[in-house]
Design a binder for these strands. Sequence first.
DNA 1: GTCTATATTCCGATAGAC
DNA 2: GTCTATCGGAATATAGAC
Lengths: 205, 205
Amino acid sequence: MIKERKEDITTEQKILQAAKEVFTEKGLDGARMQDIADKAGINKALLHYYFRSKEKLFDVIFVEEARKFMPKLVEIMKSDMDLFEKIEKFVAEYISTLMQNPLLPIFILSEINRNPKETLKKILGNQRPPLEIVDEHLAKLAKKGVIKPIKAEQLMLNMVSLCIFPFIGRPMIQWIMKKNDKEFLAMMEERKVNVVKFITDSIRK
Amino acid sequence: MIKERKEDITTEQKILQAAKEVFTEKGLDGARMQDIADKAGINKALLHYYFRSKEKLFDVIFVEEARKFMPKLVEIMKSDMDLFEKIEKFVAEYISTLMQNPLLPIFILSEINRNPKETLKKILGNQRPPLEIVDEHLAKLAKKGVIKPIKAEQLMLNMVSLCIFPFIGRPMIQWIMKKNDKEFLAMMEERKVNVVKFITDSIRK
DNA sequence: GTCTATATTCCGATAGAC
DNA sequence: GTCTATCGGAATATAGAC
């Protein structure tokens, strides 16, 4: 933050990396500054030197992770792709993101639940997916007889649910299905196809 | 716990009720004994008198809530109902349960994520849904041409995802869709039908 | 910038009177 | 059983040397 030479960038980076790991795993309340310091290979005082307080450090991590978590539903849905292409693109991309950041959903959604208003204002502001546009789009396709009638709200909620939930329920799912980490990820990889098929089979006429 | 006369049952009850509210809202780490005491209208010392420690009190709440959370997938799936009836029954019953306990999923799944092994052993043991039976069942129906081929694993994961996720993402969903609590619950009520339709439309041939 | 040592705050838990 | 007062530890945060 103050030193600027090449090798020294790494201290702040190391802190951020360590903080990300500890916070995503334990949440704000469960995380310990000591653990973050240990993982970063430095000591507690230095954390405060760089970020003043636990809350401030947490905020940096949180908004960064929240950005990753928010699906690009808006952009994808507004593009001029075919509906079925949109669904395929969204599901595949989003599941890929989550496979690389498996703890993201439970981390973000837990924190939102603990402190909804503040948190949501911070990360969403007034962003909203273009439900009306998608609704028109769906209505048109339904009229043409290409798909069954469905509300954008419901369709998008279903898409998101099918992508995100397995990661939130991951430990339980692995336990019940007796899968190790590798097998779970393989299942998620398969799911990219399965979920798309599940959705399109449902809405297609 | 010690006194047995009628009016006095309420102290322990009051504690349990207060503890349930605070723990489900804040989680183990975020909950404060002081808040529980305040909400129960007693003082901290009395909490310890009744439950010895925060952890012990938490455990009581947790196993009680976990039982509610675990869907009766096993029983329903093993019954001799028609597949589509099973799906309908499961979805409607489960969404009803969650509407009455909206914080249940995020509470249980957060705690599982913080401490997977211990927690899962405690609440699940060796319980597992009869995936093989359902798989056979699904294979038979697929052969008859009633449904498209699908793995039990995927079907059940999809069912559970579609029911649970909206409650986990509730604050975010309400924010994005500009719905108040009443409107959200109305949407979940509608969803009982919508989700069943979504699933059956997908697998039916 | 980085460390050691220490201050400060908070919170779970206990002692002891009633 | 219930309360007030207090202890003791843990965790965040700061002071100050290097």
